[in-house]
Nucleic acid binder design. Structure first.
Lengths: 218, 218
DNA sequence: GAAATCAATTTGTATAGACATAACCATATC
DNA sequence: GATATGGTTATGTCTATACAAATTGATTTC
């Protein structure tokens, strides 16, 4: 069926035969045709609606999927040597922008960790993280000297929801110093917020040098 | 089952009961349990292997999914006015870097289109595209004056494979001029290559000002 | 002791059948 | 003519059953 769409045997917008008809044609059970069509729908090739039938997507709103591994795995997968350096660790009232993004009270106090991940001794990612100790109490005791908060949280704080943001930005003076860049140089910034149910766990800002590439195939 | 994992009732790395046992426990058919577990596996929460069973993922390699809509839809979805401006259109031998990325012969000649997408009269995306007329012959006739190559290709050239790359870069002199930025200012660059089977269709470079954000929730 | 073989187990996938659910469409009602 | 009503139909999802495929672990063989 994917081939028929690619070869324009079934044109965009066209209604394709019903599951029962296709099942008979392909000599398969309707359940099997259903599974196949659901896969095509997930891939964005067709649009399905009850009673209305299945049609070839007019504007295939495809989606790209990016795996989000641990930094260490990401670095080691490239065959590079991984190093971790803790820059600072403390507890403080977060800046207004962080507080608001996490939807916290004005009185909230968060664990703040800044650290650096290196690949072959070159700065790869600068991590600036705020952790909510009301949800992850153990974060108050963790010293993050040996294990990065990234890995520590995977072990200690499961999450149910997450939001990712990616953008380009100019390196701040601090980021430039840490990453061995010039101030104002473009950097690739990822931001992630995770929740356990309704409660925010952590907000992390991950800064990469502009040589960084996020790639995916579909 | 997702709840059990989130609540650490089933710990990371632990082997969870077999499908048959779970089916009995939940009062469902094994096929249903199988579907549920396959969903959890796709979400990266568990890892499954035949005969070995299902275990809770140690390092939940989650994946983020970004929908890749048409620029116009993206802009209109924000409630902004969409405008399109064709900057140039021609046919030429591509620069070596483009040729190599597409895996083409040195003699290849490609259709080259440069255009601008605006949101509320502000430059939103600069599109620099190369199209392979050997695969999409109609591209030689299309003038791209009214419809952007982005939308034109969706209508005229189905693809089977695609590769997306995102990164931060410094605006070139040309990009800065077109996007009303200063040269060297950070820009968010997306690059997409699509293929029909083995044959490359198009390579597009999409440049956004640094205010652009790519967001997803999971 | 190492390698080959084999049975058991768990997931993967297919089947047929059933009912649920949503949406379209024609008809009836006001 | 506008609004309800209900039948029809395509997809959504579940059940029960069967067999395939992969991998483990024990056993046998050399």
């Amino acid at each position: 069926m994917a081939r028929r769409i690619a070869e324009r045997l079934w044109l965009p917008g066209a209604l394709i035969p019903g599951e029962e008809v296709l099942a008979r044609e392909f000599g398969a059970a309707r359940a099997t045709v259903n599974r196949a069509l659901q896969e095509l729908a997930r891939a964005g090739l067709v649009e399905r609606r009850r009673r209305a039938g299945t049609r070839v997507a007019l504007h295939p709103v495809r989606e790209a999927r990016f795996v989000i591994p641990l930094v260490r795995q990401e670095i080691e997968a490239r065959g590079a040597e991984y190093q971790y350096r803790l820059l600072s660790r403390g507890e403080a009232a977060p800046p207004e922008i962080v507080r608001a993004r996490l939807g916290l009270e004005a009185t909230a106090s968060l664990v703040h960790v800044r650290c650096l991940h290196l690949a072959d001794r070159v700065p790869y990612q600068f991590e600036d993280r705020w952790i909510n100790p009301d949800v992850v109490a153990a974060a108050r005791e963790a010293d993050f000297a040996g294990v990065s908060p990234n890995e520590w949280l995977v072990e200690h704080a499961p999450f149910t929801d997450a939001e990712f943001t990616f953008r380009a930005a100019a390196a701040s003076a601090e980021e430039a110093a840490v990453m061995q860049l010039r101030e104002g140089e473009p950097v690739f910034v990822g931001e992630r917020i995770t929740w356990l149910g309704e409660r925010p766990i952590t907000l992390v800002r991950m800064v990469h040098p502009s040589s960084h590439r996020m790639v995916t195939r579909l």
